[in-house]
Design a protein around this nucleic acid. Sequence first.
DNA 1: GGATACCGGACCGGAATGGTGCGGATTATA
DNA 2: TATAATCCGCACCATTCCGGTCCGGTATCC
Lengths: 155, 155
Amino acid sequence: MLKIAKLTDYGTLVMTTLARAPSSVLNAQELAARSHVAAPTVAKLLKLLVKGGLVESTRGAHGGYRLARSADEITVAEVVSALEGPIAITACALHGGGCTIEGSCTSRSNWRLIDDAVRQALSAVTLAEMAAPQAAPVARIKPAVSLRSMSQAAD
Amino acid sequence: MLKIAKLTDYGTLVMTTLARAPSSVLNAQELAARSHVAAPTVAKLLKLLVKGGLVESTRGAHGGYRLARSADEITVAEVVSALEGPIAITACALHGGGCTIEGSCTSRSNWRLIDDAVRQALSAVTLAEMAAPQAAPVARIKPAVSLRSMSQAAD
DNA sequence: GGATACCGGACCGGAATGGTGCGGATTATA
DNA sequence: TATAATCCGCACCATTCCGGTCCGGTATCC
């Protein structure tokens, strides 16, 4: 179904929760309460997010987490990347090796284009926008493609 | 990693193979040989593709498969949908129920937008284009979004 | 009627995912 | 300094999903 992992979904929830308390330091438990995600899961998520450089942590008593950057500067693509690794629709979009049919694979470069389009779609939305009540106007993300009109070569 | 299933990847391979022989009827074995995908897997894929209405089958001796429509009229999105079900990035984008945090979930509608953008990206590429040697110019898929520039409401 | 080839299931092993727990390190507070 | 709070890193388990295989049945051509 081309869907992101459930954890990633939760991750954005936690991130938006964080985004709504810009100057506060919230601990994992508090975050869990506000985001309605199970506490252990939140803890796990936070670790990944810290490792990804999206969240900063303060250790010790009264420690907690806060966004590493302004919610305006963090895109959904970054969150997804931090939690699921590099965004790549096809398996061999990255490593290039291991494909037994590499030679006969003329579609690869075209997949790369699609891949790119998806990445752009995710990069287009910031945390601040996700955190917004939902005022996002429908026209926000562009149709993305007309492309058919500019086809040419093989026909 | 937001990646499509490997089967789907193979599926597009098979479809492009089919696209290169517009007026022929190829059986599963022949398709496997040309696409370099394991025969049983090809058979399985074909079943899904037939069910999805993308491929037509002819039974009996000298039977086989051919595209239900012109390669120009079949998009990658259709292939993905046929093999993986409706395209939905988030789990609850479809059923809407089962989410325990539905009430506090302000991000849902925004996810829908991203979802839509992805779908459009996949709809933008046809089988014919995937089958093409790879002449696809890089500009084929539009940047998809500038969106930031057209935001207005909350800012 | 026999051979070819699709059709629709069931089936199984392996991998990945979601979720949990524990010992350790770090810092604030008393 | 001692204690409590909190993050950190890892290992672990159960479940689900995915990729792949097989078989009996049916339709069509020779």
